[in-house]
Write a protein that binds this DNA or RNA. Structure first.
Lengths: 106, 106
DNA sequence: GCAGAAGTACGATGACTGTCAAACTTTGAT
DNA sequence: ATCAAAGTTTGACAGTCATCGTACTTCTGC
């Protein structure tokens, strides 16, 4: 169990910060990640997302999402799995996730 | 009726863009403006807001908010009044404004 | 062991943007 | 007419950040 096996740090719900969450979600790539994760209804590995950036950039985006509390990350083999922290987000910011990931007309 | 009397351009609801709205609301000063406007329950002139930036910076923020469709601006004398476009925002992005302006625990 | 797969870490870079000061414009009051 | 009040406009500047390439690490399978 090397350093890569260690679970990266995740904030608790009580530490969620609206400013940080908004800064995470204002980026189109990151919002797309969250949307895809919400639609999938299952955990996804980093490589499973349809995003148009290089791997190193993707790593950066996942880190921002994790540190804001939007996703939970854990390893399975060489793959890093991503889980949407939906319940905790709804607790901290009721309605926010729905408002941002709901597909609306047009 | 000089050029200052002309109403500045406002987007229609059908033109509202989530990306633009989020970019407007991610700034703490602008989000504070929207929050204050929502709490006031009446239109406010630019100078009536409690913000810690110079007038020229404030002008910039109000412009960003107006172009995103968050506020409607009109002149009364030398004062520029600001109205929150709450109903139209709720129509375009249901729940978003509430999620961002509701005071939550902590 | 070795090669490949899956990410991560580390600069470097370019674009964007929030901020201000200074000069200007319009309006209302004296 | 003049003056002050309220914003606007126009650069300039500094800090932030999304992006990439390259090198590196960890794990799995052969």
């Amino acid at each position: 169990m090397g350093p890569m096996g260690r679970t990266p740090p995740h904030p608790e719900v009580s530490q969620f910060d609206l400013q940080q969450v908004l800064e995470a979600l204002v980026d189109p790539v990151r919002r797309s990640i969250v949307t895809q994760l919400g639609a999938a209804d299952e955990d996804l590995k980093c490589g499973a997302f349809d995003i148009s950036v290089t791997k190193s950039t993707a790593t950066h985006h996942f880190k921002v999402l994790r540190e804001a509390g939007l996703i939970r990350q854990y390893y399975v083999g060489t793959s890093r799995m991503n889980a949407l922290r939906r319940a905790e987000l709804d607790e901290a910011f009721p309605g926010l996730l729905d408002a941002l990931t709901t597909r609306r007309k047009q």
